[in-house]
């Protein structure tokens, strides 16, 4: 090693080690006890069987599910207020905050007689999230001034077609807590 460091590299010595940590392998022929591998197999099996007594890292999905982190950002939900009116007023702040430009909407004016449906004078007649574009960053939730959009603790379901990833209002809107309390509770994740 000393000679390697001090002497300048010369072509006739062949490949030089990059570090001084290389070990020289012993190539002695194995003894009889070593060649039947008994001890080595036992050593390996010890490690294998010791795992029987350890805690299982896996769970039996779909019967069991893992708890989500409280900050998990999953599928979007369009919220309703306690009277069942849609909270979204189509202000466009989620769409302008969206870095993936996944959100589009079209607003409409609330007609007289629709006060039980929409909370404000203006509402989103169309609201669409392109889940193929969405990166689940949660900036829409942060931007929303009306507490209307939330990222729930659910995954976006897998599908075979691209078309099924364009989520409209009927996919996003939470069930009405007044007329459909059971479905609302299920959507909220409240278990009875």
């Amino acid at each position: 090693m000393q000679t390697l460091k001090s002497s300048p590299p010369s072509g006739d010595r062949g490949m030089q080690a990059l570090t001084n940590r290389s070990k020289i392998l012993e190539r002695k022929p194995m003894t009889f006890l070593e060649s039947i591998y008994l001890w080595n197999i036992l050593k390996g099996m010890m490690i294998t069987f010791s795992h029987i007594f350890k805690k299982q890292p896996t769970i039996h999905y779909p019967e069991q599910t893992r708890p989500f982190s409280p900050v998990f950002r999953g599928l979007h939900v369009l919220n309703r207020d306690e009277e069942g009116r849609e909270r979204c007023t189509a202000c466009g702040l989620c769409a302008v905050a969206c870095p993936a430009e996944a959100i589009t909407m079209e607003a409409a004016e609330r007609l007289p007689g629709e006060e039980n449906l929409y909370r404000e004078e203006k509402y989103a007649a169309r609201y669409e999230i392109n889940m193929l574009r969405c990166i689940f960053c949660g900036l829409c939730e942060e931007a929303c001034p009306k507490d209307a959009i939330y990222l729930s603790e659910t995954f976006t379901p897998a599908s075979f077609t691209r078309e099924s990833f364009i989520y409209g209002k009927k996919d996003l809107l939470i069930p009405d807590p007044v007329t459909k309390p059971a479905e609302f509770a299920a959507a909220k994740g409240i278990k009875n």
Partner: peptide
Amino acid sequence: MDIHSVSEVNRTNIELSLIDGPATSKTF
């Protein structure tokens, strides 16, 4: 996929800019 074949927003049969007043549920 052509997004316009799936998306309900910006449909060609509703010209929002040409409607006199605000759009309502009737428009849609």
